[in-house]
Amino acid sequence: MTEILAKLEHVSRVYQKGREKVDVLHELDLEIEKGDFLALMGPSGSGKTTLLNLLGGLDRPTGGTVTVGGQELSAMSNSQLSGWRSTHVGFIFQFYNLLPVLTAQKNVELPLLLTNMSGKERSRRAGIALEIVGLADRANHKPRELSGGQEQRVAIARAIVSDPELLLCDEPTGDLDRQTADEILKLLQTLNREHGKTIIMVTHDAQAAEYAQRTLHMDKGKLEARAAA
């Protein structure tokens, strides 16, 4: 029997823009199994990123419940959510979002600063994460000294360094050329298949979605399931 990692029940998200209410997600239900690699596609403004933010505890639903790993995120305080994020979820963004003042190694170590690990242990784990993404030899380079693909690999290393079960990727290849994008997607696939990470990836790219086990399409805040190609 497959284990459900994340569950959304009747989730709504309404934003207030001036006097206008924007209904981004509407009564959405979704179950994500552990070990799943799910691609979320859909037009801009369909609610993909909002859904990702809710699953990552970055945002709160205006209605319904979001449960990840048995914990109801919507019931957690801000500080509980911060603590939860640091150990249970890794984020990968389109524009990498690395800290430019830190080296690749220090960027990867960032989530580990929140633990009680010694500096030596943090450094060892960051080294392993960089090795997994194939960038051990770039550990002491700053982001501006890396290519886009390398920056994204560092961002992936940062996302996996605290060994979270869930990786949330918001258009991770949106800023990369085809070849580099494929390399990154293969890496995500490896993390899914060999390291058991559950991955939810927002993308506009149908080719990128092919790397996922299944694809869900969103439109106007609602989901539509289709079989993976």
């Binding site: 801000n78 500080s79 911060s82 939860w84 984020f91 979002n97 800290l99 960032l110 929140l114």
Partner: peptide
């Protein structure tokens, strides 16, 4: 601002 948001995203609390 985006960098500070990244810190919060990876788990740094408001107080940190």
């Amino acid at each position: 601002i985006p960098e500070l948001a990244v810190l919060k995203t990876v788990g740094f609390s408001d107080g940190s």
